[in-house]
């Protein structure tokens, strides 16, 4: 059970497919003009990801290695067609808003990457869980972007006006340039948080009290959440990192290092 929780955490936070692994940029940029569209896209991709992971995992012993990519694509496109038809039947307005990006889930790199890296090597249940975790991670990233863009671009969240009437709607955030800019700033924030946690981990490794990273994992607001990302990330990747500073990592590991790092962070 623990293992699945860890998998979920990896997919949503530490190994987030969009914000950390930087996969699947097209739907991320294109469908996040509003939170509703972003969530719909994320859920559609999650459904396909779970189904295709399960199916590929079931067939992993029968698919010949040479044609595996083609086989994966056919399996994925079958599920994508099913999801597309279901959405057309039951969620028509969302289907129209997402447009071509529903069939384009076929060529979403996240799905092929998980099929190749995980489902083709693991049993069914972990593969399904991996699909769920990665799909939720993708949805999470899309929702962050969707919220920011909808809030800045039309002053509302989920269609409800949040900001006062006097707020001038910055339409640029709904247009393509805003998509690139928002994603750039969000990923910069993620890198910043990861850098901070790295530093914290190193300092903790220095004082030999690394174990306390895990229990800190309980937070609801985004900032605390992000701190959890980094804390748990530190705990997981901490094993080799433990020795690294002693062996002389790229960053200097003198006592002044922490102060210097801090200063650099403040500067940025």
């Amino acid at each position: 059970m623990n293992r699945y929780i860890k998998q979920l955490k990896e997919g949503i936070l530490d190994q987030n497919p969009t914000l950390v692994q930087l996969l699947g940029m097209c739907p991320t940029l294109a469908t996040t003009t509003s939170l509703e569209n972003a969530f719909g896209m994320g859920m559609a991709a999650t459904a396909v990801l779970i189904c295709s992971n399960v199916f590929i995992s079931l067939l992993r012993k029968f698919i010949p290695r040479q044609v595996r990519i083609a086989a994966y694509i056919v399996i994925v496109s079958g599920f994508v067609t099913a999801v597309e038809l279901l959405m057309r039947a039951y969620l028509y307005s969302l289907y129209q808003a997402l447009g071509l990006f529903i069939p384009l889930i076929v060529v979403n790199c996240i799905i092929l990457a998980r099929a190749e890296a995980f489902a083709s090597k693991n049993k069914v249940l972990p593969s399904a869980m991996d699909g769920l975790a990665m799909g939720l991670g993708f949805t999470f990233a899309l929702c962050i972007l969707g919220t920011v863009r909808e809030l800045l671009g039309s002053g509302s969240v989920l269609g409800f006006r949040v900001l006062p009437e006097a707020y001038p709607e910055m339409v640029v955030f709904l247009l393509p340039p805003g998509a690139f800019l928002t994603l750039g700033f969000v990923i910069a924030a993620v890198q910043k948080l990861r850098g901070m946690s790295e530093e914290r981990r190193r300092r903790r490794a220095g004082s030999g009290a690394r174990q306390s990273a895990e229990p800190a994992a309980a937070g609801t607001e985004p900032a605390a959440d992000a701190a959890v990302i980094s804390a748990s990330g530190a705990a997981i990747s901490g094993v080799p990192g433990d020795a690294a500073p002693a062996a002389g990592s790229p960053d200097a590991d003198t006592p002044e290092r922490q102060a210097a790092d801090r200063k650099e962070d403040n500067k940025t």
Partner: peptide, 23 residues
């Protein structure tokens, strides 16, 4: 660029500016 922007983020921001030009 500032450390947090190194690599991918600054690339995306440049792409955003280029997209403005194309718009």
């Amino acid at each position: 660029p500032p450390r947090a922007f190194k690599g991918f983020p600054i690339t995306l921001i440049a792409a955003g500016l280029l997209a403005m030009a194309f718009s």
